[in-house]
C-alpha cells in the first residue's frame, strides 16, 4: 500500500505543479486577446505529442507495477509465503537488459549526431539483447517449473511468474515499437527529426523498463524485505 502511496504522491505533485505553472491559480481567463497567457519555460521547444503520450503511458504502467508491488508486499505477509529460489540466469538477464538500455542510449546520441550507420547498429544491438533477455526469462521460468515450483503451489511462485510475465509483455510491446523504428531507420536516407524522436521514445521506454526490472528483481531476491517491513510498521 505504501508503494502505491509513494507513487501516487509523486504523480499528484507533478500534476499539481504543472497545473500551477499553466496558470490555474491566476485569472487570465478573464482577459481578452489573442494569446492572453502563453508562458513556457524559457522559450524551449514544446514537447511533441509522442513524448507527452509516452510520459502519460509511463505513468499508467508505473501505476500498474506499483499496484503489483503493493499486492506482493500485502500478500507476502501471510504465513504460507515461501519465495522460490532465484534462477542464476536472472543475473545474466539483468546484465542483458542493462546492455540493451545502453545500446538504445547510444542510438539516441548517434541519431542526434545524424550518424545513421551507428543508429542502425545500436538499435540492432538493443533489439537483440532485449530479445535475449526475454529468452533468458523463459529459461528462468522453465528452470523453476522443472524444480516443481508451480504457480499453484505457492503464491510467491505465482507472483514470480506474474511480475516477470507482465514486465515481459511490456517489453514485447516495446520490441514491436522498436522494430517499426528500426524499419524506418533502414528505409531512411538520413536521420530526420521525426526519426530521432522515435529513437528517443524507445530509449526512454527501455530505461523505464530497466528501472522497473531492477526494482522487481530486488523484490524477488528479497532485498526489498526491509522495505516491506517498513510498510508494515507504518501501517500498524
Amino acid at each position: 500500500m505504501s508503494v502505491m502511496g509513494l507513487f501516487f504522491i509523486f504523480i499528484a505533485t507533478v500534476a499539481i505543479m504543472w497545473l500551477v505553472r499553466q496558470g490555474v491559480m491566476e485569472s487570465p481567463w478573464l482577459e481578452e486577446g489573442e494569446v492572453a497567457h502563453y508562458r513556457r519555460a524559457g522559450g524551449a521547444e514544446p514537447p511533441t505529442a509522442g513524448r507527452v503520450g509516452l510520459a502519460v503511458f509511463l505513468a499508467v504502467a508505473g501505476c500498474l507495477f506499483s499496484l503489483l508491488a503493493a499486492a506482493f508486499f500485502m500478500r507476502g505477509d501471510a504465513p504460507d509465503w515461501q519465495m522460490p529460489p532465484i534462477p542464476g540466469v536472472l543475473w545474466v538477464n539483468t546484465f542483458l537488459l542493462a546492455a540493451s538500455s545502453v545500446a538504445l542510449q547510444v542510438a539516441v546520441f548517434a541519431a542526434r549526431r545524424a550518424d545513421a550507420e551507428r543508429v542502425k547498429t545500436a538499435l540492432l544491438v538493443g533489439a537483440v539483447t532485449a530479445a535475449l533477455f526475454l529468452i533468458g526469462q523463459i529459461w528462468a521460468w522453465r528452470e523453476l517449473l522443472e524444480l516443481r515450483f508451480f504457480a499453484s503451489s505457492n503464491a510467491a511462485n505465482a507472483f514470480f511468474y506474474l511480475l516477470t510475465g507482465v514486465h515481459a509483455l511490456h517489453l514485447i510491446g516495446g520490441l514491436v515499437a522498436l522494430a517499426r523504428t528500426t524499419d524506418k531507420v533502414r528505409g531512411a536516407e538520413r536521420v530526420t527529426k521525426a526519426l530521432t524522436t522515435s529513437v528517443e521514445l524507445c530509449a526512454i521506454y527501455w530505461h523505464f523498463l530497466l528501472f522497473v526490472w531492477l526494482l522487481m528483481f530486488a523484490m524477488l531476491i528479497g532485498w526489498a524485505d526491509g522495505f516491506g517491513a517498513i510498510c508494515r510498521r507504518l501501517l500498524s
Binding site: L64, A71, S152, A158, L162
Partner: peptide
Amino acid sequence: AVMALLAFPGLFVACVMLLLDRTLGTSF
C-alpha cells in the same frame, strides 16, 4: 480520463490475479 488511467490498473491487476486463481489454481 487522467483518473481512469490511474485507477483502471487497480481493476486490471485484480482481474488478472483473479483469473489466475480461477484458471491456474493460484492463491492470490
